[in-house]
Amino acid sequence: MSKPALFGLTLNELIALAKEEKLPGFTAKQISEWLYKKEITSIDEMTNLSLKVRQQLSEKYCFGLSQPAKVSESTDGTKKYLFTTSNLKFVEAAYIPDNDRATLCVSSQVGCKMGCLFCMTGKQGFQGHLSAGEIINQLRSIPEWKNITNIVYMGMGEPFDNLDNVLKSLEILTSEWGMAMSPRRITVSTIGVIPAMKEFLERSNCHLAVSLHTPFDEERRMLMPIQNVYPIEEVVKEIRKFDFSGQRRVSFEYIMFNGINDTPRHVKEMSRLLNGLQCRVNLIRFHAIPDTPLKGSPDDVILEFRNALTAKGVFTTLRSSRGQDIQAACGLLSTKENMKRE
């Protein structure tokens, strides 16, 4: 069995570890500096720790970084990294450069339990949670990690089904002792697991994105089984209890499906559902996946939909499609690699 990793531990956990190892209290802070602020990859390189302490740590722990197993690069500069997980499956992270921004889309689970009709990751079933270390490793182990300006938890898995590890990873990313990123540069996306979403909103300052995809109960039920447990009306009702008038943002993701959710009826219901809520809607072109009955809306319909929502006072943006030549749809590449392995 492999040794437990230091990478992914919070400062409090490192303090507890130092105490257990009978190391001076300040050692925890020194280790966190090495783990999250410097470009080293082994305990041996923590040179302000004595050789004896380094040996002591190395006997019981590993550093915990894991290099990508594969990388695919799109003609538009988007890169998709595949990482091998502790249970020998693959997860994906997408690096998306865009002028002075560089966004990294990270995964929070191997596979997913939520079974959304339009999602390739769901076809893998659920194969495990990622640890906080495995989540941040997707940032720390790519060559562009120092240039990343924004992180979105929109890769494989439902972040709020793995809330403890996601919150831990956010703590490491945003703490002064950690990677010191602004929480305003991080967005966590959910399909609307209400209890965990409330806990996230109370305990983190990062942005929230909610996968909406249709405002109608019956339709959403067919696209997203979660609607049977946590209906979108209830999700929005909960979100209204929090303050988004400052810098913190809530956005709603809306994949455009031809003839399904792209009609004037949907515009009207969307504006009713989101009425008075300080938010934005991100329209997303559908990246087709194998064996799906769904098709993406044509561009003219998407633009008309955006204009109609905007006219209703809903701030609406259209996300540009990236990395289409490298199987950008979340879960496509890892599913292919998992199948090869099997």
Partner: peptide, 12 residues
């Protein structure tokens, strides 16, 4: 079967 005729509840 049209997907509109399928309704699912998933353990999570």
């Amino acid at each position: 079967v049209p997907f509109a005729n399928i309704n699912a509840e998933i353990y999570f």
